[in-house]
Amino acid sequence: MDSFLQHPAFQGGVAPFVAGLMVAAVLGRARLGGLAVAAGYAVAIALASGVAFSPLTALRKVALLALAAPLAGIAIDFALRSGRALVIVVAAVCGALTVWVFWSVLQHKVPAEAALLGGGAALYVAWLVVATMALSAAPVRAGAAALVLGLGTGISAILAASALLGLYGIGLAAGAGGFLLWQMVTGRTIAAGATLTLSVGLAGGLFGASALFLAKLPGYVPIVLALVPLAARLPVPPRFPIWAQAIVLSAYCFVLAVLAFVLTRQGVAPPA
C-alpha cells in the first residue's frame, strides 16, 4: 500500500484526478465545483512533499499561496462583484506576491538579473491571473485551459529537471481533468468562477515560475505557456456537445503545450 501511495503516477495523477472528480461531482451544484483544480494540486503537494510551512522556503510559499487561492476565489465569487478593476487589482497583488515568494532566490543574484527575473515572473503570474479569470464564466474553456496549463507546466518542469514541480503541475492538470470529465459525462456545465480560474492562474503561474527559478526551465517557455488561456478562447461550433467542446478546446491549447515541451527539451539538452 505504501509503495502505491509513494508512486509518482498516484501522487501526481490518479489521486489528484479522483479528488478533482469527486469535488466536481459533490460540490458542482453548490457553485463550488471550481475547487476541483485546487483539490487536485493540493493532493499532489500533500503526497509529494507534505504540507509544512516552516521554514517558509520559496516552494512552501508557493504551496501556501496555491492553497489560499481558491479561498480568495470563493470570496470573489460569493462576496464581491467581479469586474475588470477587481481582476486587475487581484493580478497586481499576485504579481507582487510572486516577488515575495522568490525573494530568497532573487537576493542571491546581481540587481539587474534579479530585477529582470523577478519582474518577468511577476508579469507572468499576473498575466495568467488576468487571462484565466477572463474565462470565469466559461467553465469548459476554463477547464481546458487549466488541464493544458497544468500539463504544459508539469511536463516542462520534469524536462527541466524537477520531478517535484512536475507533480505539482500534473496534479493541477489532473484536478482540471476531473472537473472537465464530470461536465463531459453529465452533459451539464459546472460553474468555474474565480474559485477555479484564480487557482489556475496563481498556482499554475507559480509552478512555472518555480521551474524557472529552482530548476532549469528556459525563460522563453513561460511565454508560450502564457498563451494557453488565449487558445482556450478560440471558437468552437456552438452546437457541439460539452464533451466535444472540451476535446476541441483542449486540443487547441495542447498545441502550445507541445511547443513548450519541444522548446524546453531544446533549451535544457540541445541535440549533440
Partner: peptide, 25 residues
C-alpha cells in the same frame, strides 16, 4: 552523462527536489 534524459543526476540534485541550490547556495 545525460543518457537520453534532459538532465544529469547532479542537475536534478541541485533543483528544489533536493538541495535547492538557487535558494540555499
Amino acid at each position: 552523462e545525460l543518457r537520453g534524459r534532459t538532465r544529469t543526476r547532479d542537475e536534478h540534485l541541485r533543483t528544489a527536489d533536493f538541495f535547492n541550490v538557487q535558494e540555499f547556495p
